[in-house]
Amino acid sequence: MSIDWASFTPWSALAGGALIGLAASLFALLNGRVAGISGLLGSLLQRQSEGRGEKAAFLFGLLLAPGLLAMFAALPPVHFDVGSFGLILAGLLVGIGTRYGSGCTSGHGVCGLSRLSPRSLVATLCFMATGFATVFVLRHLLGG
């Protein structure tokens, strides 16, 4: 394994992680809710959900942030090595896993672990192990 040191950006990664933690902490402190993206989106789509305004604003901010960044810096290029079918399949599998796992990476990995939730620890270990196994199979066994 080799590291592309020219593309290695630990300071921006650290700043991004700190901002994610700050946003999740503020959302929990100010709203009393966990900032799990799949849960926010799912409850936003329900008619009887309370706090729809702040949920919509939080999710809108996630979509708006790359546009704001693009005004000040060049965004990195996005490249997928799979076709449309692969992206659709991956999205469906993530959605199914999110429903069965009662949350997503932001809900379990960021918010749940910070609250020392045992369920979130198990969920995070499962999706990390699955991700590692998927990369290993695709890159080393299937030669992708």
Rank of each mutant, 00 (worst) to 15 (best):
L125Q: 05
G109N: 08
V82Q: 06
A129M: 06
H79R: 14
Q46K: 15
V82H: 06
M128W: 13
G67W: 13
I20R: 04
F8D: 02
C104T: 07
M128E: 03
I96N: 03
A18I: 12
M71P: 00
A57Y: 05
T134G: 09
A28V: 01
G86D: 02
Q46W: 02
I3R: 13
S102R: 15
L45K: 12
G143R: 07
L121H: 06
A13C: 05
G61C: 04
V122H: 11
L141I: 14
G16D: 05
G21M: 12
G103C: 05
L142A: 11
I3K: 09
L92I: 15
S12Y: 09
T105E: 01
G131K: 07
L45M: 15
F58T: 01
S117F: 04
M128N: 07
T9A: 14
G83L: 04
A133Q: 08
P76C: 03
T105H: 02
R139A: 13
R33W: 09
A15S: 11
A70H: 06
L41P: 00
P77T: 11
F27N: 04
P66L: 04
F27D: 02
A35T: 03
L63W: 09
G16N: 09
L116K: 13
E50C: 00
G39L: 07
G53R: 15
G21S: 07
S7Q: 13
A70G: 00
E50W: 06
F27Y: 15
G53F: 11
G101F: 09
L142M: 12
G67F: 15
V78Y: 09
S106Q: 02
S43C: 00
N31R: 15
L63P: 00
A73T: 09
R139G: 00
L40A: 10
R99M: 10
L64A: 15
T130P: 00
R33H: 10
R139V: 11
A123M: 12
A6V: 05
L62H: 07
A35G: 02
I88V: 15
H108M: 07
T134W: 13
L63E: 01
S38L: 03
L138N: 08
